[in-house]
Amino acid sequence: MRIVIDGKKVVLDGCQVETKECGEKMLTELYRRYVGDYPKFFKMDTLSKLGFIASELLLQREASLRGVERFVPSEERGVIMGNRSASIVNDREYEKTIQKGDYYPSPALFVYTLPNIVTGEIAIRNKFYGESGFYVVEDKETLMEIVRSSSMKAGIVGWVECRGRNDFEADVELI
């Protein structure tokens, strides 16, 4: 199963998911329509929201198509993701809060200045005790080489790139 998201549209296993909004508002729209019961979503940075929504739609589809029960703790399942620009969007946001004359660093913002937080968010939501990891690499093919070499046999893997709050793309699979 595969989901492809960009700032304007969402395609789940080849079928476009209907959305009205664009950019981060589209992620919120998807959250309200398909998730709704996980308010931590609103604390997440854009990169984490993107990875979270991608994983939710994939796992919901698995639950409905294959009857797999959700939120059952799993030893095998993990989350491996990657991109080119790490957590740069939230890093720049945090940077603005530590300027001279305008110094108010926030722990809630600082924690998202690491790209592997998105993999942690997905592992926590789904009780995936398997491998979790984030790689900053040239392209998705390099990431998939790393995934194939890993011991992870099941879970969420894929590319989550975020260059701005409304400029992002995800290409994520459930394996």
Partner: peptide, 10 residues
């Protein structure tokens, strides 16, 4: 070995 706590982000 690499594993997630599946508990908390911070």
């Amino acid at each position: 070995g690499i594993h997630n706590d599946a508990n908390h982000i911070s």
